[in-house]
Amino acid sequence: MSAEPETTPLAKVTDLAVNLPTGRKQSVDAVRHVNLEVFAGEKIGIIGESGSGKSVTGRSIAGLLPTSPRVKLEGSIIVDGEEMIGADAAAWQQVRTHKVGMIFQDPLTYLNPVIRVGRQVEESIAPSKWKNRDPVVQEKSLNFLRLAGFPSPTEVSRKYPHELSGGMRQRVLIAIAIAKRPRLLIADEPTTALDTTVQKRVLETLATTVSETQTSLILISHDIGVVASMTERIYVMYRGRVVESGSTSQILSAPNHPYTQALLRSVRSLSEPDVDLYSIPLELRRKLEMEDVA
């Protein structure tokens, strides 16, 4: 439970629809009529299978959809009181520089391979001080690396991404995302590419940094376990829509939507020995598809 009285949300998405090009003439409705809000200091989760539109939703809020003019956005995204749909590049740049940070799935490809780690963190703190490096900024970047779980940040800051392990790279991405002190952090499958043991430690790091900096968090994952342990509220997405939302405990204990029920059952069947192996039945998918068309 968030201590703050719930007034206006930090970010509010209303009736969002995103259409992405997939080929020369084809396109896909990746997100359809999604409503979502996150309050200051709140941690929410978006769960869903791949292709459910959860990542596209996250990227829409962070302004990181492909720049192609064929990408079509409709509805409303309000970040910190400002309407961002139809906003110009400068306004988006403001949001990305100060307000919304993003952590991506694959820690290797999302770091620039030819630039030292420290510099990549510094760039996030002060994008304009690239040519003449500022010692103050350098000092700050070391602090953020320490916050992201590196006991000896000086050493790490001199390394190139390929010299680090997967877990360390993910911590660097966390440091980059928090270094600009955003109000909202969007983590898109931040631990999917990592080993289970490393996963746990990175999640702990993420949890502590977010609460220490009092940042709101949107955690996007297909892994219910990861989302359950980190968030207060959950949105369940399927085929581009939010099919169910509610507090984490309610969703886990008493899911309403048949898809959520099936999803939870299939997850339990993997971890609990007395539940038979279960995967979301095709009939359910067909039924949901029919409802969609209707």
Binding site: P21, G23, R24, P66, T67, S68, R70
Partner: peptide
């Protein structure tokens, strides 16, 4: 090899 929309 059509490479549409590859630039981010």
């Amino acid at each position: 090899n059509p490479n549409i929309g590859k630039v981010k």
